[in-house]
Amino acid sequence: MAVPRIAHRRVTVDGVEVFYRESLPGRPDAPALLLLHGFPSASHQYRRLMDALGDDYRVIAPDYPGFGHTEAPEGFEYTFDRLADVVEGFLEAIDLRRFAMYVFDFGAPVGFRVAERHPEWIERLIVQNGNAYEDGLSPQARDFIALRPEQPGAEEIIRGLLTLEGTRSQYEGGVADASLIAPDGWTLDQHFLDLPGRKEAQLALAYDYHSNVERYPAWQAWLRKHTPPTLIVWGRHDMFFPEPGAHAYLRDLPDAELHVLDTGHFALEDGLHEIAPLIEDFLSR
């Protein structure tokens, strides 16, 4: 059985010390797979997927500024544009310029910004509960995105999602068997959320999320123009990004491969046994 080694590294980008995980595949010419994590997690959410794929592919998973093990300097502006700036600089710093890109949750607005700037970098696209269409916004998500700093009670609503109960619910919501969800993921996420300054970073990103919805038409146009080979894997019981968001991609990518699974937002947690073979088959073609 081939089990990859995983290196844990750091590189400085515009004053941000970016932490990332990188598999050391069995062959030097292995194709690259970039994994972009979601909220409120970090690259650790991909540990099992990296073990499953990392011997055949150079799998790379960075932590965004203010997430996981990546620290941002004082005064860093937490917007999705800035997260994309750092990821773009990170990819240039490690000289990764051709890869398949896996986007999940926050990874979609970060990844699509990078793709807009460098379409030549994206060989293939894997979307897992990463939204780019208003069809994929639940009423709960729409209400959350509409929150503004000056709105009475807005900060309290956002901070409620940043609690241990809120973090755990994102992992277990919509899951058929909660015993398949390891507590390590949401426990570690909460550890990082509770570090100094991290909740303030999440508040800023929550207030900036509307900028992503405003860019949906541009991302859809990018998909139509560049038509990357695409695999879509979606947990249908996602409380934020429901199933219509998955099918919406087919309007612009009619040849995309779509699989809807009977799980929730963090579909890899209980669906790795289904998702990893789909990715391996998709990338090997």
Rank of each mutant, 00 (worst) to 15 (best):
G38K: 10
P73A: 09
L24H: 02
E71Q: 12
L36M: 12
Y78E: 02
L36N: 08
Y20N: 09
T79R: 01
A52M: 13
E22T: 05
H69T: 08
G66T: 08
P25V: 05
F76L: 01
P62I: 12
R27G: 03
P65W: 07
D29R: 10
D56H: 14
H44P: 07
G75T: 08
F19I: 14
G66C: 04
Y64L: 04
L24I: 15
Y20R: 12
H37V: 11
F39P: 05
F80M: 10
G75K: 07
M50N: 07
L35R: 02
G75E: 07
Y78L: 11
Q45M: 14
P31A: 12
S23N: 07
F76G: 01
L49M: 09
R48D: 15
R58A: 09
P40W: 04
D51F: 13
P73M: 02
R27N: 07
P28W: 03
L53P: 12
R21Q: 15
A52H: 11
T70K: 01
A42T: 09
Y46H: 13
P28C: 06
P31L: 02
A42H: 15
L35E: 11
Y20C: 11
F39L: 11
D29M: 09
G68C: 00
F76M: 01
D56K: 08
Y78K: 06
G38R: 12
P65S: 01
L36R: 03
S43G: 11
A72I: 07
I60M: 10
P65E: 06
L53N: 10
P25W: 03
I60P: 03
A32N: 05
T70F: 01
G68W: 07
P40F: 10
A72H: 03
G54S: 06
A32M: 04
A52F: 10
D55M: 03
S43I: 12
A42L: 06
I60H: 00
R48I: 07
T79K: 04
D51T: 14
H44V: 13
T79N: 02
D55L: 05
V59K: 02
S23V: 10
L36H: 01
G38D: 10
G66Y: 00
H69A: 15
A32V: 13
F80T: 04
A30V: 07
S41F: 05
V18F: 12
L33H: 13
P65Y: 03
G54A: 04
F76I: 01
E74L: 01
Y64P: 06
V18M: 09
S23C: 05
R27K: 14
V18H: 05
T70A: 04
L34W: 04
F76N: 06
P31Y: 05
L49P: 13
D81N: 09
R48L: 14
V18Q: 00
L34R: 02
Y20F: 15
A72P: 10
L24M: 15
G75H: 04
R27H: 03
P73Q: 00
A32K: 13
R27T: 14
G75I: 00
D51G: 09
